[in-house]
C-alpha cells in the first residue's frame, strides 16, 4: 500500500512546495516581512502564464520567460511603493497590508477569470514518464524537483557570490549600518522582492501545469510554503527543501492511507516538527 512509489511521489511533490516556499523564505530572511499574499501571487503568476500561452500559443516554459520580467517589475514596484512603507518595529502593518492585498488579489482574479478551475497545458510532457529502475515517475514532477534544486543553488550563489547578495546579507543584518556603507535599503528590499517574484514565476509555472487552479486556492499554497520554511528552519534554503519534502511525503502517505487525510497529514507533520524542534530542523538565523 505505502511503497517506495508513494515516498518518491511525496519527495517530488516536496520540490513543488520548496518552490512555493523559497520566495517567502527569501523575503522574510532579508526584511523580516511575512507576505500573506504570497500564495495569491503564485496563483496570479499561473494566470499570467496561462494568458500568455492562450494568446500567443507559446510553449509554457517560454511564456514563463516572458512573464518573469513582468513579475519582477511587479514585485519591485509593490515593495517600493507599498511594502517599504510598512517596515518597522511593529509587525502589524506588514501583516495587515499583505492580508488586504491577498483579499484584493483573490477577488480581482475571481472577477477577471471566474471561479472555474483552469490548467496550463503542457502537451505531451504531462503524460511522459521516466523509468528510474525501482519506480517509474512522471517527467513533470521530476522536472519540478530538479528546478527546485536549481533555484536553491541559484539563490545561494546569488547570496554568497554577488554584490547584490552581499547587499542582501548586509541589510538583513543591519539596514542602518548597511546604508552607511552606501547601500540603499529601500532599493535592496525592492530588488529582493523582485527576485522572490522570479522564484514565484517558476513555482507558478509548475503549479499551473501540474493541476487545476482557481482564484481561491492561494491561501493553501501560502500555508504549505510557510510550513516548509518553519520545518526547515528560518534562513536555510536547503532546510526549506527538506521541509517541503517532509510535507510532500506526509501528504502522499496520508492520502495512501485515506484520501481524506492528505492535507491533514501534511499539517500534522508540521505540528509534530514544531513540537519536537520548535526552531526547525536546520536553524541558522537567530530571530
Amino acid at each position: 500500500m505505502i511503497g517506495v512509489d508513494t515516498i518518491v511521489q511525496g519527495v517530488l511533490l516536496g520540490g513543488l512546495y520548496a518552490l512555493f516556499a523559497a520566495g517567502l523564505s527569501l523575503v522574510f530572511g532579508i526584511m523580516r516581512l511575512v507576505n500573506l499574499a504570497h500564495g495569491d501571487l503564485i496563483v496570479m503568476g499561473a494566470y499570467l502564464i496561462l494568458i500568455l500561452v492562450t494568446l500567443s500559443g507559446l510553449n509554457p516554459f517560454l511564456a514563463a520567460l516572458v512573464a518573469a520580467p513582468l513579475m519582477f517589475g511587479l514585485g519591485w514596484g509593490l515593495q517600493r511603493l507599498v511594502l517599504n512603507r510598512t517596515l518597522g518595529k511593529d509587525i502589524l502593518p506588514p501583516l495587515l497590508v499583505t492580508f488586504g492585498l491577498s483579499i484584493a488579489l483573490q477577488n480581482a482574479l475571481l472577477e477577471g477569470f471566474s471561479a472555474d478551475s483552469r490548467k496550463i497545458s503542457a502537451g505531451g510532457l504531462e503524460t511522459a514518464s521516466a523509468d528510474l529502475g525501482i519506480v517509474t515517475v512522471g517527467v513533470m514532477p521530476l522536472l519540478t524537483f530538479a528546478s527546485a534544486i536549481a533555484v536553491i543553488v541559484g539563490l545561494n550563489a546569488l547570496f554568497y557570490r554577488t554584490a547584490l547578495g552581499r547587499a542582501f546579507r548586509a541589510v538583513s543584518d543591519d539596514p542602518v549600518t548597511a546604508s552607511l556603507m552606501g547601500i540603499r535599503p529601500a532599493h535592496v528590499f525592492a530588488m529582493a522582492t523582485g527576485v522572490a517574484m522570479l522564484v514565484v514565476t517558476v513555482a507558478a509555472l509548475y503549479f499551473g501545469m501540474r493541476a487545476n487552479f482557481d482564484p481561491a486556492i492561494g491561501p493553501a499554497r501560502l500555508i504549505y510554503a510557510f510550513e516548509a520554511v518553519i520545518i526547515g528552519g528560518l534562513g536555510s534554503l536547503w532546510g526549506t527543501l527538506a521541509g517541503g519534502i517532509i510535507i510532500g511525503v506526509a501528504q502522499t502517505v496520508g492520502a495512501a492511507v485515506n484520501p481524506e487525510w492528505q492535507i491533514l497529514a501534511g499539517h500534522v507533520a508540521f505540528l509534530l516538527v514544531l513540537l519536537v524542534r520548535p526552531r526547525g530542523l536546520f536553524p541558522r538565523a537567530v530571530d
Binding site: T86, P93, V97, L101, I103
Partner: peptide, 20 residues
C-alpha cells in the same frame, strides 16, 4: 460581489498606510 471584496482589501491597505 467580488468587486466589493476587492475594494474592502484595498481600503484596508490604504487605511493601514495612511492612518494606521
Amino acid at each position: 460581489g467580488s468587486w466589493y471584496l476587492f475594494a474592502l482589501g484595498i481600503i484596508g491597505i490604504v487605511v493601514m498606510l495612511v492612518a494606521p
